[in-house]
């Protein structure tokens, strides 16, 4: 039994090395003073300086963050309202919406991307920030719906009635009872939408224009030559995402434990 375990643990370590080694190397070499990817000469923040003084990269960071932010807000609202409305809808409409909703999830990104590209050019919409934002809402909303809708289905259908019975208008019932009940699903949707948007390359790449680039597009265009500035950018992005994820996973547990602790005492 023991021996078994050691083999398993070794295998898990190898797999994790496979996942994390490249990321780790990127991070380490972002602090290298030379341009080399093999020889670590000395510690320096040279590439970080480069990064923060590069107008293009800083603009791309702003595009990525602001689009992720706006797309998340819009798709969370749209997706949540749709999920709530969906649960009591006629069966046919419900199935059509759910199936259409699955299209952007199941379709390869590249097909979604060219579809939008053709759509925007057909209606002579100038490609740039706005087209990118619309495209991001397109692929983020389905993820919000897939995380919120199951929660809506799990709701006691009488909860809204109970609130209205006690004098709440339908709007008050929505904000005071239904939305708090869906909190977990909505948070999951927000997290998914934000990271999906922030990470996107394929769709952004096809629908943008006029010099509007996000982080992914900048990286794609700079990889023609090795460029340690990208390492610096990667390091920051990876750290931000990793820390967010860890916090998201740890905070609810800590809060829960604290609450349980409190209710015991």
């Amino acid at each position: 039994m023991r021996k078994h375990r050691i083999g398993q643990i070794l295998y898990i370590i190898v797999c994790f090395t496979f996942f994390y080694l490249p990321i780790l190397v990127t991070m380490i070499y972002s602090f290298n003073s030379s341009k080399s990817l093999t020889k670590f000469e000395s510690f320096s923040l040279r590439w970080y300086e480069n990064l923060f003084t590069s107008h293009d990269i800083m603009y791309a960071v702003w595009v990525s963050v602001s689009i992720a932010f706006l797309a998340t807000i819009v798709s969370t609202i749209l997706g949540t309202l749709t999920s709530i409305g969906l649960s009591k809808n006629r069966k046919i409409l419900k199935e059509i919406i759910i199936n259409v909703n699955n299209v952007p999830i199941m379709n390869p990104d590249i097909v979604t991307a060219i579809g939008l590209m053709i759509l925007f050019s057909s209606i002579h919409m100038e490609k740039g920030y706005l087209t990118m934002l619309l495209a991001h809402i397109v692929f983020c909303t389905p993820y919000v719906i897939t995380s919120v809708y199951p929660k809506v289905r799990g709701l006691d259908p009488n909860l809204a009635n109970a609130a209205m019975d006690l004098g709440a208008t339908p709007f008050q019932a929505l904000t005071k009872v239904i939305l708090p009940m869906l909190k977990e699903g909505i948070y999951a949707g927000v997290l998914l939408a934000f990271t999906m948007s922030f990470d996107d390359f394929v769709i952004s790449y096809f629908v943008t224009g006029n010099g509007v680039s996000n982080i992914s597009i900048i990286v794609y265009n700079m990889t023609k030559r090795t460029n340690p500035t990208i390492n610096a950018l990667s390091t920051i992005v990876i750290l931000v995402i990793a820390i967010t994820l860890i916090l998201v996973n740890v905070i609810p547990n800590v809060a829960k434990r604290r609450k349980e602790h409190k209710s015991v005492t």
Partner: peptide
Amino acid sequence: MKHYVKMVWPY
């Protein structure tokens, strides 16, 4: 919940 059925139309 049927009060909210109309909320699907924007989507």
